[in-house]
Structures are given as C-alpha cells and as structure tokens.
Computed example of a mutant assay.
Amino acid sequence: MHGPASSGWLLVALCAATGAYCLLRMRSRVQEQRRAAGGEALMGFGMAVMAVPAAAFTPPAWAWPACAAVFALAGLHALWAARTGACHLHHLIGAGAMVYMAVTMAALPGTGDRHAHAQGGAGTPVLTGALLLYFVAYVLVAGVRLAPVTAVTGAGRGAGWGDRPELARACRLSMAIAMVAMLLTM
C-alpha cells in the first residue's frame, strides 16, 4: 500500500526476503510443507509488489484487478485444500485480505498517491478493522509461540531449509506483521 517511502521500501524488502525464503522451503521432503511454502512465497512476493511506494512506481490500471484475480485464485485453492485439512484457515484469510486491498486500490480514482486519498474517508471500514484485529491477534499468538524456541527433533544439522518449523513460523509471523502495516495504510 502507499505510505511513506522509507517504510514502504522496508516493507518491500521484508516481504521479498520472506517470499525468497519460502521458495527455499519448497525444497522440503514433506509435500504439505512444500505446498504451504508455495502459497506463502506467492503471498510474500505479492505483498512486496503491493508495498512499492507510489513515488517510485505507479502501477498501470490493470495491475490492481490482476492482483485481485491472482489472490482470488489463491484463495480458491486454499479453500479447496482446506476441505482435506491440507491448508490452514490463515492462508485463506491472507488471500482474502490481499483481494480486499487490491480491489480497494483499484476502486480509488486517480494515479497519484492513493494512500492520501484512502485516508480521506469516513473512518476505518468494518472489513479493514476486522482484518486488522485478526492479523494483530495472529502476530501476538505467533510471537508468543515463537519466543521460547527450543530445539526441535530432527531440526538439527541434518534438517534442510524447508524442514525447520521454527523458521516457517518466523516466516508467517513476518508476513502477518507486514499485513498489519499494509492494512493500517488502507
């Protein structure tokens, strides 16, 4: 979303690094971890693209509907995977939040700084507030779960990048923090 340039670039870096790490996690030997990592890589790179400051790049008119379509498909995939228990509800909510932000950005007129225009509304929409509450709660719970990291069986020297559950949790936590920052600019 389009806030101050310095924080925008930090958000781009965080999301891109998280997306790149998720690509590394796709090398896991466990199919469910590979599948989750793929969806999280898409989310990380998508968030990085959406966080680019407006002063650096104003996307063409078709970019926001394209983002909404990509994440709507990701949401449908997460919904389909949820029927077998192979996907967490968190992935579905994250994809929905991305669709919501892309649709909101597409609906705003003009090609300038959309952040300033979005802040001129009559308060925080209910959906934005609900998503903020969810992601703040997720950050707090995930942070508490991550804080007392102990050695996990099998996560020693022989474990690959994709088989480190504490790193996967840290990846999800960083994307949830980035989502909070993006939703705050709505």
Rank of each mutant, 00 (worst) to 15 (best):
S6A: 14
A170Q: 02
A74R: 06
E32K: 09
C22W: 00
P60K: 09
A151V: 12
W64D: 03
I93W: 06
D163Q: 07
E32Q: 10
H88L: 11
A16K: 10
Y134R: 03
A66Y: 07
P53R: 02
A16G: 12
G46M: 11
A97E: 05
T111W: 05
A51Q: 00
W9N: 09
A51T: 09
M50F: 08
A16C: 13
A170N: 06
A97H: 01
C22L: 07
L42W: 04
T150D: 08
C22P: 04
T128R: 13
T111Y: 02
M179P: 00
Y134E: 07
T128S: 08
M98R: 01
G120L: 14
R35P: 00
P65N: 12
H115D: 13
Y134S: 05
A155G: 10
G154S: 07
A178Q: 04
M43V: 15
A170E: 05
D163W: 05
L132I: 10
L108R: 10
A68Q: 08
M50G: 07
G3Y: 09
L173E: 00
T128K: 09
S7K: 13
L24M: 14
L24K: 09
A78N: 02
L173W: 08
S28I: 06
L184Y: 00
A55N: 11
E40A: 10
L167S: 08
Y100H: 15
H77K: 12
T124S: 08
L89Y: 05
L89H: 08
V12F: 14
A95C: 15
R29G: 15
G110Q: 09
A130S: 12
A63D: 03
G143P: 03
P165K: 12
E32R: 13
A118V: 13
G143A: 04
L167I: 06
R114G: 04
Q33N: 13
A63W: 11
A61G: 10
L183V: 12
A137Y: 09
A86R: 09
A61R: 13
M105K: 00
L14K: 04
W80K: 04
T128M: 01
P148G: 06
P165L: 11
A97Y: 02
R25Y: 07
V144T: 05
P148C: 07
W64L: 06
A82L: 15
H90P: 01
H91Y: 11
V126M: 03
G121Y: 01
S174F: 08
A106G: 04
A178I: 00
T111L: 10
W161N: 00
H88T: 14
L127D: 01
R83F: 10
F57E: 07
M182D: 00
L133M: 11
A48L: 06
A95L: 01
V12I: 09
T111D: 13
T58A: 15
Y134T: 05
T111S: 13
W161L: 13
A130Q: 01
